[in-house]
Design a protein around this nucleic acid. Structure first.
Lengths: 362, 362
DNA sequence: CGCGTTTGCTAAACTGTTTCAACAGTGCTG
DNA sequence: CAGCACTGTTGAAACAGTTTAGCAAACGCG
């Protein structure tokens, strides 16, 4: 039936008119320029086999018609989506956490500059059980993944390597899994804190840390122990309390420390949130910060400078960690072979939550 | 040359083998099942025209082969990408802000449940100048946009309506632009704060707010004025100070208030961050919170309960605002015609930063 | 002048899915 | 028993690009 052919002809012609949805396609440009779509595509991709005259003519036309490549079609035929996922832990307040926010900020800024889009994912049990972290690659959602807030129990990070999916652990580090990472120098940070507190005369220093399955937390703990050992101080088991990285946890941990460690003069918290919770608790228990108890944090989040008293803490270059992670991930996506393991320096920021130890000053 | 034909045949066959990149395509499943790709596609989309027997047989095969639809191809032929963008303001710490985090948390949770992915964008001048906020639609990155942290000067929100792009303003509201929105009841919140402070005997109440180009901030300001007027109190111009929604701004605003409003007994801050900055400043200036000056915030962010003293504030259902915004946006994407303008209730949370006014209690 | 190379462009295959017209095959009806 | 409706399946177009083989035309050279 010849009608079929005519119908199709008509349909194609209608489809080729720039009226459809107001969006201009390559075909529309090609038709207008009276060249093939291949030519237009090559012009846009800077293929040198197109003559200068044609190239300029088409570039002007593309500009005039306001053509925007459909990136679904682009990604379908090329190997890349130019999208990366940021995988956050399954915590209720993960997005509302200034720590992650700072890292994500670095990631997004760098991604924007490099022509990448950033997708947000949360590593919920459901998500992982369905192997969604791998499926987002198979289904061509993303080219790579940045894993934030991981710990040793998160065995799913191994899956990326096995499946050949570009992935990067951000501000942490796995001993047993071979995966790229960029991390702050937690060991040096902890050393700086301990040196500073010791220099102020503190000896009975409590440590509020978090789950030992986090490598960076272990580094801090080990450094804390080593530094005390240098002075011949042997910390009791109850000098170290888990604060779960939250304000509440920090407060509860501080309560335990104040109760079970008589003569405690300083608290070293593994992050700023716990330090703030701890300060809060110290005051609630009728002691003063820093006169009775000094408190040191770790992160240097923006509002560490606005709590009362302002918080002495270790500055972590979280923005830079995020930016560098993204950069390295993209290199890996484009075939970088060597493993990445970068460590970024940290430094102490002295504010008002620390003072000379009581026994020394008084 | 007949070799050409043979080469192409070979190529197609190679392409059809499941070996390619390890990813199984619809074609692979169809070949294995000895049916056409159309049949497999229809089975997966639950088309009732496929027989029960074929359907089951193919479903098992799909399962066994681990087939995952390529969503670039799906989106290319369907009208939808199933991705929405969250547009954050161009502030340095936008991602590290607990306020946005809470909203985004609601958005992401709901998106996950509804089978949507969330992309992050920042409304930087460059981005807007290039009309990227419209181009992400044209280039088929997203089906819709959620705009956070907007104000009246952000004229670009009009562009969505004009271009026919589904978009939603989250926790704000435009007088002059017709765009869907979901917002917290700022007016009622401000009323609750003022009633409470007045009930405690406060009359000289300073207001720390932010840019008047934000509708919600204007609502708070108007309510504040109206409530004082009810008591016959005519606030001076210097009773209202801009705190830019930051801790620093709040601190500086509090300094100004303490200086220029003698006998000030209470500060009402337009968000928790400014309230925290203000408390910090009050203490720095040698006064006590709440004995000398009561401070009230607005947001009820997680750490409002962990500052010192704990902050009395208005609880905003930010998580719910995020979740509902996403839900409504998706309805709009799928053709909802009626405009959306929802207002969610707020309530006062009394903590320790407020007390009876000095002149009354003392 | 004929042959080979270069240049500039095009046709067509390819990415992986959805959708629709059409087509066998079967059962029912007049 | 032809004609019809219905069922289950297929082929091919469509989505919008990229990429490659190859074809004319122009050019250089012996």
């Amino acid at each position: 039936m010849s009608t079929t052919g005519t119908d199709l002809k008509q349909r194609r012609e209608r489809a080729a008119s720039p009226a459809r949805g107001g969006v201009v396609s390559l075909r529309d440009v090609a038709k207008e320029a009276k060249v093939s779509v291949a030519t237009v595509s090559m012009v846009l991709n800077g293929n040198p086999r197109i003559s200068r005259a044609t190239s300029l003519r088409i570039q002007r036309l593309v500009e005039r018609m306001g053509y925007q490549p459909n990136r679904l079609a682009q990604s379908l035929s090329s190997r890349y989506t130019n999208v990366v996922a940021v995988m956050l832990p399954a915590l209720r307040h993960a997005f509302a956490d200034a720590y992650f926010g700072e890292v994500i900020s670095g990631i997004c800024d760098k991604a924007g500059k490099m022509g990448y889009k950033v997708m947000l994912e949360q590593a919920k049990p459901e998500f992982l059980k369905e192997k969604q972290h791998i499926r987002i690659f198979e289904r061509r959602y993303v080219d790579g993944v940045l894993c934030l807030g991981t710990n040793d129990r998160h065995r799913w990070v191994e899956d990326f390597g096995e499946a050949g999916c570009p992935a990067m652990v951000v501000d942490n580090h796995f001993d047993q899994v071979r995966i790229d990472h960029v991390v702050c120098d937690y060991r040096s940070g902890a050393e700086q804190v301990m040196n500073y507190l010791i220099q102020l005369g503190h000896r009975k220093i409590g440590l509020i840390t978090a789950a030992p399955e986090i490598k960076t937390a272990r580094s801090v703990r080990e450094t804390y122990r080593a530094k005390l050992a240098e002075l011949g101080v042997q910390p009791d088991d109850n000098w170290i309390v888990d604060g779960e990285f939250t304000e509440e946890g920090g407060a509860e941990a501080a309560r335990q420390l104040m109760e079970s460690v008589p003569g405690l003069t300083a608290i070293f918290a593994g992050n700023d949130k716990m330090a703030i919770g701890a300060m809060h608790q110290v005051v609630t228990l009728g002691q003063r910060v820093p006169q009775d108890v000094s408190v040191v944090g770790f992160d240097d989040l923006q509002h560490a400078a606005f709590v009362n008293p302002t918080l002495t803490t270790i500055h972590l270059p979280l923005y830079e960690v995020g930016a560098m992670s993204l950069e390295r991930l993209i290199e890996r996506i484009h075939g970088r072979a060597e493993p990445v393991n970068e460590t970024l320096p940290t430094h102490l920021v002295v504010r008002n939550s620390t003072a000379m130890a009581k026994s020394v000053s008084g």
